[in-house]
């Protein structure tokens, strides 16, 4: 079974990020980067599927891949090979353009039986990639997977939604996104880290993908980015405890915080 895992790289500690004064984005020179946490569940699931069913697990990343490289990390965890897609000529990629690039890369390096990804990246947090990819590839998708079993040509997936759980069955190939609880991700071993350097990394640029720059023109544009406004002044609630309690409940209810 050939599984591809799509990786996203996000800043490690959002507490130390700051926005550029002109509102165009984040200051990034010394940012520490890491693999988006939900992607860890996806990588782990890909490795487990390979262990159970044989085949290959491939990590794919669209983005500059700052150090420490998420692809190297995936290789260190046990992934067989990595695909790095980047071209300095890319415009700022919005989710749809990223998905188009990813889909092209996956078609080039495919065929795959399953594509796994974290259900959202904790950076820009669009949460669209699984659905976009699935539609571009014309595959079924199941998001928020907390349980996955492959049964021959199809997969049975348990997903966790707001008010409970659902069990879906989809034919493969399919796009499946991972939610916390899907598995217990492994730690990388020293052996894995050292072997990672010897594993193949395929680098793809725009010319390899068969897409044009027009296809990648952003449909969603960032106009402005600023730090979240500081909370307004605190509202101190006075009175005796009973009065304070009632007033708080009243205020919260008005603000729609109680359901």
């Amino acid at each position: 079974m050939r599984v591809a895992v799509c990786l996203k790289q996000v800043p490690d500690d959002t507490g130390r990020l700051s926005a550029l004064d002109d509102g165009s984005g984040l200051q990034g020179a010394d940012c520490t980067w890491m693999l988006s946490p939900f992607d860890r569940y996806a990588v782990e699931e890909g490795l487990r599927l390979r262990a159970a069913l044989g085949g290959e697990c491939v990590a794919v990343h669209v983005g500059p891949d700052h150090a420490p490289s998420v692809l190297t990390e995936a290789l260190a965890l046990g992934v067989d090979k990595a695909v790095h897609v980047w071209d300095d000529a890319f415009p700022a990629l919005d989710p749809l353009a990223t998905a188009r690039v990813l889909a092209a890369a996956l078609r080039l390096t495919g065929p795959f039986d399953m594509i796994l990804a974290g259900h959202r990246g904790v950076g820009e947090d669009h949460g669209q990639m699984p659905g976009l990819l699935a539609e571009l590839l014309d595959w079924p998708q199941v998001t928020l997977a907390v349980g996955l079993t492959v049964e021959g040509e199809s997969a049975r997936v348990v997903r966790e939604v707001e008010d409970g759980r659902e069990e879906w069955r989809v034919t493969l190939p399919a796009v499946i996104s991972a939610q916390k609880g899907l598995n217990e991700p492994r730690q990388k071993s020293l052996k894995g880290v050292l072997e990672a350097k010897r594993k193949p990394v395929l680098r793809l640029a725009l010319k390899d993908l068969g897409t044009s720059l027009e296809d990648l023109a952003p449909q969603l544009r960032r106009e402005h980015l600023v730090a979240s406004p500081r909370r307004g002044a605190i509202r101190r609630i006075a009175g005796d405890p009973d009065a304070q309690a009632r007033e708080l409940v009243r205020l919260l209810r008005e603000a729609g915080k109680l359901r």
Binding site: L220, R221, H224, A227, P229
Partner: peptide, 11 residues
Amino acid sequence: VFGGRFVERVS
């Protein structure tokens, strides 16, 4: 975005 620390406006 970024864990709620930033607000972005998009068109």
